[in-house]
Nucleic acid binder design. Structure first.
Lengths: 185, 185, 185, 185
DNA sequence: AATGAATGAGAGTTCATTCAT
DNA sequence: CATGAATGAACTCTCATTCAT
């Protein structure tokens, strides 16, 4: 019966359901039922269904936006880029459900007025990592480094092995790709 | 007024719209209007909305399933795996809209009785590529090789450069990852 | 593959389904599927769905209508009435599925342009059996005699016992009621 | 604009229409229009169309179920049975529209998950009235007693005469049949 | 801070029916 | 004698949203 945190609880439950079933397939009725309130109560806290999602995004994409903003102010060196990968992996880890949701519901999220889309953020990120005058093969390596982190965050769950070990191995491969790209230059 | 090909036309239009807007957000009314037939006509050709999607899947995932089936009968050698990567890249290219749809609508597709899901196919594929007793870092490399092909197929479109060149570079990086994984053993 | 009897086969299958599920809940698709023809084929033989039902009725209610017509020309004696009960029981037996259908779908049949309704025929029949200047109690007995035959035809199936024996007992009770009504006068 | 009784008003209007036109032929649009609300309003009060019917049944078949329950605890004597007939006639009278609906829509009701069906209740009732080791002719008399009450309730309306008088006469004939069945033993 | 009652729009689906072939 | 393809109207049902209380 904690009070005053209903807004937060709505977002938590909503993200769970959105991630599990998708945004469109999740109805406000469902969210309300899980919270044991009425649908109308949701409208006290959020103006629309989309607003619930926007609220979630704002809380959870901030780390990623901050990372992009930070990187944009750093020198475009290998060291910076290594640090970007490290920080990005942490961001993925911290907001795993949201990232999973964003990846699995791109088609939906694309239409929403939710600021930058997943793809746009990804473009910004890869733009920071890769160097336009690298050979194409090395640009691919840079992009691949990012996707490797994603694979590590979302797909590697399905593969047996210690979670921490997979985490470290993933980062190692990503850094390796980055280093190869830079080494070739 | 071409006749006899309505079924195919429905699938084509549907895939376009599904890919563009997502499965749930695309209504049968929309599909019907674009084809200039009534909703009921769709039901002459498909039993349900889901059936339309299933029809599309059956046509387009066959290459991927055949690839998996083929690979399962080959010796688990580096050469086989290289060939898997090559063929997979071709499959991705041939059924690009569907793969894009699958990736961007995983949340939706997951609930559909559409045979193997995207994830299951991916698991099968990575299962063929990686060797369970490799070091974790090399297993990640194998998985990453597959994801690199995906990145090449879907994400690299957003990066300037000649299409064929990107295609070759993508394959090169993927093969490279595979070779590194095997070289380490 | 008998030919030329398709019309009859449609009626047979339709009556089966109508009796089992009701008229409204039985679709032409269902009828067609059971016959392994297309819906359109039904329209070669019958102008509308209602026409199928009308066709069935015409074939099967004729005995009942003939019985009423016959009785109307007979003297209004006890003997005539006994004979009416006997013949009615035979009619019920001969067209059991139709009568069952009529009883269980009165609400539907009532709206159809199917000549006299079940209720109207029943009224005609009881009008022949009862004498308006009998005491009310004896009029009830006459009506009850008819309903007893119905009970025998439709409800007594659910009670264990030899079918022929139930048949005879039913008639006996009905005749008994009739006799009591007349005896009291 | 009376409020708070919408649920009840829906059931009332629905039963009227169901009885008049049958369950299937009555659309929610019709019910809603007659109440001057939208279709969606019906769904605020009932989960499905069937639920409306179930609600009606629960309210109105309770007397019949209570009667059966009561009778099952009484000694299986003639007196009990006489009382069953008396009470059943009252139950029929109290829930006349529902009983009429049940009789005229058996085909529909049979498929609904509406607890015991009409037929099952009838079987329970006749099971209480008749004695399995009676002669068949006397078992028929017992069943006929029940059907006589039905005839009295639904069919006798069509016959001229004072309503109360018909009511009494109907009960008398039913009791008579019961007594004859027991007297013969 | 939240509810009860309702709405308007639209969804997917089914049906009887038509007609050129 | 029958089919393949299609339609128009209706259906049940769900959803996001509103608002007086």
């Amino acid at each position: 019966m904690a009070r005053g945190n209903t807004r937060q609880r709505i977002q938590d439950v909503a993200l769970d359901l959105f991630a599990e079933q998708g945004y469109e397939k999740t109805s406000l009725r469902e969210i309300a039922e899980r919270l044991d309130v009425t649908k109308a109560a949701l409208y006290y806290h959020f103006k629309t269904k989309e607003d619930i999602l926007i609220g979630i995004f704002e809380d959870l994409t901030r780390p990623m936006d901050e990372l992009i903003a930070w990187a944009e102010e750093q020198p475009r060196t290998l060291e910076t880029r290594q640090e970007v990968l490290r920080r990005y992996q942490e961001a993925l880890r911290a907001a795993a459900p949201l990232f999973r949701f964003m990846q699995e519901n791109q088609a939906t999220v694309r239409e929403l007025s939710v600021g930058l889309t997943f793809k746009e953020r990804m473009l910004a990120l890869t733009g920071l990592i890769r160097e336009p005058d690298f050979a194409m093969v090395d640009q691919v390596r840079c992009v691949s480094a990012i996707f490797t982190l994603h694979a590590g965050a979302f797909f590697m769950q399905n593969i047996e092995g210690d979670s921490e070990e997979k985490h470290r191995a993933t980062l190692e491969v990503a850094l390796d790709l980055l280093n190869q790209a830079h080494g070739a230059a």
